[in-house]
Amino acid sequence: MIWQLDLVILLFVVICAIGAMMVKDLLSAAVILGAYSFCMAMLWTEMGAVDVAFTEASVGAGVSTLFFVAAIYQTTRRSKD
């Protein structure tokens, strides 16, 4: 564990989270969420939780984002907040 790296990724994660919340375009929000998940997976690898990171990378960053995109595609992309 390198705490500098740790801190940087953590900050990045927080920025991604805030971004996903702030963005008005839902599709972008979903993609930022994917990025958030990916950073999270990196963080966990760095913490030694490889299994969890693997899962998060495939599920959170991959499939989950796809689900969001599919659902947004079916409904609407706009959001008022």
């Binding site: 490889v50 299994d51 693997f54 899962t55 495939s58 991959g62 499939v63």
Partner: peptide, 13 residues
């Protein structure tokens, strides 16, 4: 690392 769940997700993907 890995196992049924991760592999399953990859197959599904």
């Amino acid at each position: 690392p890995g196992g049924g769940f991760q592999g399953g997700v990859i197959l599904g993907a």
